[in-house]
Design a protein around this nucleic acid. Structure first.
Lengths: 209, 209
DNA sequence: AGGGTATCATGCAGTTCTGCATTTAGATGC
DNA sequence: GCATCTAAATGCAGAACTGCATGATACCCT
C-alpha cells in the first residue's frame, strides 16, 4: 500500500531527507484515505463524494486524480485502509498479553461503538448492491476475520483452543454486531444501551465459558 | 395492506380501468410505496431515486407529486409501509397457534433472509446520517418491537412469561440480525450460511430454553 | 544554480437528480 | 351529453457530482 517508487528508472534511491517528494505523496494519500473513512462515518457512503473527501483531506479536488482516478477507486482503497485500521485496533488492544474472556468481550463491544464499525457498516451495506465494491470487500473481510481469530486465539490462550471455539467466536461476533445495529435502529439512551450490553455480555459469558 | 391488486404492467398497455377515482388513487399510491421498497432492496437507499420509483411503479414521474411532494416524503411513507409488512409477516407466521422455541427461532431467521430485512437494513443505515429519517424510524421501530414482542409472547405461551424473557428476545434478535449482517459482509455459500445458522440456533436454544 | 518533472490548483463539459409548472386525459355530477 | 374538477404525463430550470483538461508550484538530479 505504500507508494511505489515512481522514479523513472531503477536508480538507487539515495534517501537524502525524510521530507522528500515521496513523503509528500504518502502524506496526501494517507490524508485522502483517512478523509474517506471520516466521510463515511459522518455522511454515509452515499454522500461520500469526491469533493467532500478532498475538502476533509485539506487538498484540492484535482489533487486526488494522480492517486485515485475515480470515486470507486478511492472507496476501494479505503476498504483496505479501514481493514488495516480494524486489524491494528484489535491487535493493539491485547498486545501479546493474556486476557480473560470477559475483557475480550468488552473489547469487542467497545470496538463496535466507535467510528470504525460505522464506516465498515456503511461499506457492507453499500456492497450489497454494488458488485464491484462487494468483490473488493469479500476478499478483505476474509483477511480481517483471520486476523481477528488469530488475535483472539493468542489473547485467550487455552480458552480459544477449546472445541467449537471458532463457531463460538462467530456467534459472539454476530451478537455484538447485531446489538450495535439495534442501537442504530432502536436509538435509545446510553444508559439503556449499557444495560443491554450488560445483559448481553452476561449471556455470552454463560454460553462461552 | 391492500396493495398489489393490480401490479404495474409497464410493458403491456392493457391497463385495467379502475372504476372509481378513489381506487385510482389507492392503486397508484400503493404501487409507489411498493416500488419504493422494491427499489431499496434492488438498488439501495442511495440509488432509490424518484425517477426509478416511478418507473418501477409503472407511473410517470409527475404522478407522485400529488401524493409525495419530495423524495424524503415518499421514503418516510415507505418506512411505515415497510413496518406494516414486517408486522404482518411476523403475525402471519404464527396466527394464534402455539409454536416451539425452535420453530420461533427458525421463523425469525427466515424473516431476516428475505427482502424485508434488506429494505429495513438500508433504512437503518441511512438513518444513521439522516436525522429526519432517523426520527421517523425511531418512532416506528418501537411499534415494530412491541408487535414482535407481543407476537412472540402469544406464540410461545408460558415460555415467554419466564423471568428475563424480554432480554432474551433482544439477545436472540441481535444475534440473528448480526448473523444476517455477517452474511452480507462475509459472503459465503448458501451451504456455509446454513451451517452457521445451524450452529447459532443450537447455541441460542441452549441459552434460551 | 537550472532544466526537467512530479505534484497540486483551477476551471470546464457531461450527466443525473430534484422539484415544479404546464398540458393532457379521465372521472364526477347535473 | 356536457361542463367542471381531479389525476396523470410531459417538459424545464437549478443544483450537484464526476471526470478530466489546463495552468501553476514545489521538488529532484546534474
Amino acid at each position: 500500500m505504500l507508494g511505489s517508487t515512481v522514479m523513472a528508472t531503477a536508480t538507487v534511491p539515495t534517501r537524502r531527507r525524510p521530507s522528500t517528494q515521496a513523503e509528500r505523496r504518502a502524506v496526501t494519500q494517507a490524508a485522502l484515505l483517512d478523509a474517506t473513512i471520516e466521510c463515511l462515518v459522518a455522511y454515509g457512503h452515499a454522500k461520500t463524494t469526491t469533493g467532500r473527501i478532498a475538502e476533509l483531506a485539506g487538498v484540492s479536488r484535482g489533487a486526488q486524480l494522480p492517486y485515485f482516478r475515480s470515486r470507486a477507486d478511492i472507496v476501494g482503497a479505503a476498504v483496505a485502509h479501514l481493514a488495516d485500521k480494524r486489524i491494528s485496533a484489535v491487535a493493539a488492544r491485547f498486545e501479546g498479553k493474556q486476557v480473560t474472556l470477559e475483557e475480550c468481550l468488552d473489547a469487542l463491544w467497545e470496538e463496535h461503538q466507535g467510528p470504525i464499525f460505522a464506516a465498515a457498516l456503511e461499506l457492507w451495506v453499500a456492497s450489497r448492491t454494488d458488485p464491484e465494491l462487494r468483490a473488493n470487500l469479500l476478499r478483505i473481510e476474509r483477511d480481517v476475520a483471520v486476523a481477528v481469530a488469530r488475535t483472539a486465539e493468542s489473547a485467550l490462550g487455552p480458552t480459544a483452543r477449546r472445541a467449537g471455539f471458532p463457531e463460538d467466536l462467530i456467534f459472539a461476533l454476530a451478537t455484538v454486531r447485531g446489538l450495535a445495529l439495534l442501537q442504530i435502529s432502536n436509538g435509545g439512551s446510553d444508559r439503556a444501551l449499557a444495560k443491554d450490553w450488560q445483559q448481553t455480555r452476561e449471556r455470552l459469558l454463560r454460553l462461552l465459558s
